[in-house]
Amino acid sequence: MHHLKFLVILRFKLTQNNMSDIASKVRSIIVDKLGVDENEVTPEASFTNDLGADSLDTVELIMEFEKEFNLSIPDDQAENIQTVGQAITYLEANAK
């Protein structure tokens, strides 16, 4: 819930376009890499507990985010990205 609130605040800061762009790209990367159904990719969904990712899948996801959004995510930050919502939040705040 905390993340959702944060997203709502972010929504006012960012243009509607930017917002949905980043979130939808993140979702499609997760669908592609984890082979899950799009409707499972909810903000609260944890990569490892809900979406069937193992530790290597998680590393690969972070790398895909870095590639897609042209940024470098430090390891200590990456450790805190464990749900879909956390990924979207981080990327919306940091993507160039």
């Binding site: 290597l56 590393v59 690969e60 790398m63 590639k67």
Partner: peptide, 9 residues
């Protein structure tokens, strides 16, 4: 280096 974590396995 951007090697995929599945590269080795």
């Amino acid at each position: 280096p951007k090697f995929n974590p599945f590269f080795v396995p």
